[in-house]
Amino acid sequence: MDSSRGALIVVGGLPGTGKSTIARAYVAATGAAYLRIDTIEQTLINGTDLQQPLGPVGYELGYALAAEQLCAGTREVLAECVNPLAVTRDAWRNAGVASGAIVVEVEIICSDPTEHRRRIENRSTDIPGLRLPTWQQVQDREYEAWDRTPVILDTAQHSAEQCAVLLSAEVDRSLGRESK
């Protein structure tokens, strides 16, 4: 691996699994650039006549912003989104590879359905105007099985801070550098 290359870290998973919490902890510890698709999509909705479902526009902006950051020399870009489809996973990978970056794909899960439901039913958002999904909407959401193996972090087994440390070690390994 080449430690001089940048890294695109794509953190995905169903709503309520802990993606944003882990992403914030990782970014705070590493200084990585942070792209959050919920923020991009809600900004589009707040500033235009667009409505949910937006289709691919938020993700397309995310891919372009990630590639631009990596090409401009940003060492690490963390993109956080549900990333539910093979087509979105491939597009993130293509954006990173085309930018000369190592791509680290991460799936955040909560293996305890009772805890996952509790989180969904009791959470709030820091994005003005964002409507959070119900437990039923999370259950009904289209979410394709992976066709390659991502790094899996289980927030039913580890705290967000522990997951951020595990993620950092995986990024370091992928970049061929010693863990901090």
Rank of each mutant, 00 (worst) to 15 (best):
residue 178 E to W: 09
residue 106 V to S: 00
residue 62 G to F: 08
residue 30 T to K: 13
residue 155 T to K: 10
residue 145 A to F: 07
residue 38 D to Y: 08
residue 128 P to A: 13
residue 114 T to I: 15
residue 155 T to L: 03
residue 115 E to T: 11
residue 135 W to V: 15
residue 87 V to H: 09
residue 157 Q to P: 04
residue 58 G to M: 05
residue 40 I to W: 07
residue 50 L to D: 03
residue 107 E to G: 00
residue 180 K to G: 14
residue 20 S to Y: 04
residue 65 L to T: 13
residue 80 E to H: 05
residue 18 G to E: 02
residue 24 R to P: 03
residue 8 L to Q: 02
residue 26 Y to K: 01
residue 69 Q to S: 04
residue 100 G to N: 07
residue 25 A to V: 00
residue 78 L to Y: 01
residue 175 L to F: 06
residue 173 R to G: 02
residue 117 R to V: 09
residue 11 V to R: 00
residue 112 D to F: 07
residue 76 E to A: 07
residue 131 R to M: 12
residue 100 G to D: 04
residue 151 V to F: 04
residue 56 P to K: 11
residue 147 D to Q: 15
residue 87 V to T: 15
residue 60 E to G: 03
residue 45 I to D: 11
residue 121 E to W: 06
residue 128 P to F: 10
residue 61 L to Y: 12
residue 30 T to Y: 06
residue 69 Q to V: 01
residue 46 N to G: 04
residue 135 W to C: 06
residue 57 V to K: 09
residue 11 V to T: 10
residue 31 G to P: 07
residue 154 D to G: 08
residue 175 L to G: 04
residue 115 E to Y: 06
residue 95 A to N: 03
residue 106 V to C: 02
residue 137 Q to L: 10
residue 114 T to F: 08
residue 32 A to L: 05
residue 32 A to C: 09
residue 26 Y to S: 01
residue 24 R to Q: 15
residue 114 T to W: 05
residue 62 G to Y: 09
residue 165 V to H: 05
residue 84 P to D: 14
residue 115 E to A: 12
residue 90 D to W: 06
residue 152 I to Q: 00
residue 79 A to K: 00
residue 7 A to N: 02
residue 29 A to D: 14
residue 114 T to A: 13
residue 178 E to N: 13
residue 87 V to Y: 06
residue 125 T to D: 05
residue 1 M to E: 08
residue 144 E to R: 09
residue 166 L to E: 09
residue 49 D to F: 04
residue 164 A to H: 01
residue 132 L to T: 12
residue 6 G to C: 08
residue 93 R to K: 13
residue 6 G to Y: 08
residue 58 G to C: 03
residue 105 E to C: 02
residue 81 C to P: 00
residue 73 G to T: 02
residue 103 V to C: 03
residue 80 E to L: 03
residue 87 V to Q: 13
residue 135 W to F: 12
residue 26 Y to T: 00
residue 45 I to G: 10
residue 71 C to R: 15
residue 173 R to I: 08
residue 101 A to K: 01
residue 93 R to P: 01
residue 161 E to V: 07
